[in-house]
């Protein structure tokens, strides 16, 4: 797999970010004019020190965080301008996986998966847990895919970290997303489980033919699983290229210093 970095806007670009700024406090931008283009497939890892805006960038894409200015085009539609029903419709097309899984602890695994379909059903049906049979079949199929076929009726808080993250991924896939975001999905997991989760993310991106964008801290994992790596420093893109092009020199310029490189 060597699709290399494709920073030129193409007609099939799934996601285009233009001049994205975000300042939580006026005058102190966390994101300083991000320009990125993501093609229709492939796994992109975003690396960088803590506090450089990786999470903010990801959360701007589905507007969990409000961008200060700029454009975010999801399949040609500017998400920044959307509101209300249209924004929710856009969020439905973006699956998201979280560092701490963010499952609804007191709901069962199945109910957590069906949460991924909440954007498609009305409040009364949601209240009565009345989901279309096709959604329920889809949920069982996904549980099978992530290896949790027998866990449907267990409560989410009874699962281990790795199992929870699999549920988190299945929930995101329930949305039948056009884009999958993952915010440090392996940072709370052991090394072996981390690899399994990254494999699952890559596989599912390929199987569904959608781009996957993963924030991560583990440079080795990024090298191993990403087709493209974006390095962020101080709210700007410091590196954008194929994972194979990421050498120690680049890492130094992304993270600063060098004592930590063995």
């Amino acid at each position: 797999m060597n699709t290399a970095a494709d920073t030129q806007p193409t007609t099939q670009a799934a996601l285009v970010i233009r001049k994205l700024f975000k300042a939580y406090v006026a005058g102190q931008p966390v994101l300083k004019g991000i320009d990125l283009t993501f093609g229709g497939t492939g796994l992109t890892a975003i690396i960088g020190a803590s506090g450089t805006g990786k999470s903010t960038l990801l959360r701007c894409i589905n507007r969990l965080v409000e961008p200060t200015s700029g454009e975010i085009l999801l399949e040609g539609e500017d998400i920044v301008r959307l509101g209300g029903e249209q924004l929710r419709a856009a969020r439905r097309r973006i699956g998201m996986v979280f560092q701490e899984y963010n499952l609804v602890e007191r709901l069962t695994v199945m109910e957590n998966l069906l949460t991924g379909r909440l954007g498609t059903i009305g409040p009364l049906d949601a209240w009565l847990r009345r989901f279309p049979p096709a959604d329920i079949e889809h949920a069982f199929a996904l549980l099978d895919t992530v290896g949790l076929a027998n866990f449907a009726n267990q409560r989410a808080d009874s699962l281990s970290g790795g199992q929870r993250q699999r549920v988190g991924i299945a929930r995101a896939l329930m949305q039948e997303p056009r884009l999958l975001l993952a915010d440090e999905p392996t940072s709370s997991l052991d090394p072996k489980t981390s690899v399994e989760i990254m494999e699952l993310l890559r596989e599912q991106g390929r199987a569904n033919n959608i781009p996957v964008i993963v924030n991560m801290h583990d440079v080795e994992l990024a090298r191993r699983f990403a087709d493209r790596v974006i390095g962020m420093r101080n709210g700007e893109v410091a590196f954008d290229g194929a994972a194979t092009a990421l050498d120690d020199g680049m890492l130094r310029s992304i993270y600063g210093g060098e004592g930590w490189l063995q």
Partner: peptide, 18 residues
């Protein structure tokens, strides 16, 4: 947990319920 439900595109009522 609320953030995750919001991210799925759920309406406010559904975010409250789930």
């Amino acid at each position: 947990q609320v953030e995750a439900v919001r991210a799925s595109g759920a309406s406010f009522a559904n975010v409250i319920t789930y």
